[in-house]
């Protein structure tokens, strides 16, 4: 069976439950967004898939074989973690050379072109990289490795807006040229909203939502207009949030769009970040 399959996975750190009986599947040539608040269990989940951590119970299968302590399964996975696992004294050039040896699918030309795009020096040592360039280096290796399953944990950590934009473009180009399963775990939901196809929301160690981005955004809509018109319109609606700017107001509403919308209002798609906030907040209040 193709894909990463997670079955009844649980993990605790002492009293703290990080993952609670998780069942999930990452498969097909898709870009997944793994979203969750701080401490929701995203990194723990990715670390277990990539064999860095052991689960307390449950299993992770990669194309039908266990991912735990299995070289052949792990060869299909590249995990870009928040920490840099390359030796401090290693240069970018040496890291590429070893990546090529460990992952025969490593595309050196792509890596070199990305190095040029991001103005990253090949002879720079890991210890001399700033937080942003550390992320850039790890992301370049992750994209160039071209394994069936690429896991990106906070890939834009420390990156400025220009580099973030460039990274997302590079990611999409790499994906289009070589479709595969990519899982992006991030806090910057708005930025990845247009990239991800499927969304997994994890909260307090449990899967809160696992559906396509399109389906999720169909749960509601956004209306924009003058404050008075908006207040009038939303009277009988389930509103999950507001934005005010001068006399103008934006309301985020759950439910289907009415057949008749007042002409002074503009309707657009629901904002993923607003939906995420309301879903995770609601759960926290329960």
């Amino acid at each position: 069976m193709k894909g990463i399959e997670i079955r009844n996975l649980s993990k605790s750190y002492g009293e703290v439950v990080a993952l609670k009986d998780i069942n999930l599947k990452f498969g097909g040539d898709k870009i997944y967004g793994l979203l969750g608040r701080n401490g929701a269990g995203k990194t723990t989940l990715l670390n277990i898939i990539s064999n860095r951590l052991f689960p307390d119970s449950g299993e992770v299968l990669v194309d039908g074989e266990t991912a735990i302590e299995n070289d052949s399964a792990q060869r299909k996975i590249y995990m870009m973690g928040e920490s840099n696992f390359y030796p401090e004294g290693m240069t970018i050039r040496q890291a590429f050379r070893w990546s090529q040896r460990f992952y025969p699918s490593f595309d050196r030309n792509l890596a070199l072109s990305l190095v040029e795009k991001f103005s990253l020096g090949l002879d720079k040592k890991m210890k001399s990289l700033s937080t942003g360039y550390n992320s850039i280096f790890k992301a370049i290796v992750a994209l160039a490795t071209k394994v069936p399953y690429t896991l990106l944990d906070e890939p834009v950590l420390g990156l400025d807006a220009n580099h973030r934009d460039l990274l997302y473009k590079s990611l999409l180009e790499s994906y289009q040229e070589h479709p595969r399963t990519i899982v992006i775990s991030t806090h910057l939901i708005d930025e990845v909203a247009n990239i991800i196809e499927d969304i997994v929301i994890i909260d307090q160690g449990e899967i809160l939502r696992n559906q396509s981005s399109e389906e999720m955004l169909k749960q509601g809509y956004t209306v924009y207009g003058t404050a008075a018109a908006i207040d009038n319109y939303i009277a009988d609606k389930e509103v999950i949030g507001f934005d005010n700017l001068g006399g103008l107001k934006t309301a985020y509403i759950l439910g289907e769009v009415d057949n008749i919308i007042p002409p002074e209002l503009e309707v657009t798609k629901l904002n993923l970040q607003k939906l995420f906030v309301v879903l995770t907040n609601r759960r926290a209040l329960k």
């Binding site: 064999n51 792990q74 590249y78 401090e88």
Partner: peptide
């Protein structure tokens, strides 16, 4: 250092 580098590159602990 070696442990982390080899883990990063998909090596199991046994390997």
């Amino acid at each position: 250092e070696s442990f982390k580098m080899l883990q990063q590159n998909g090596c199991s602990r046994k390997t």
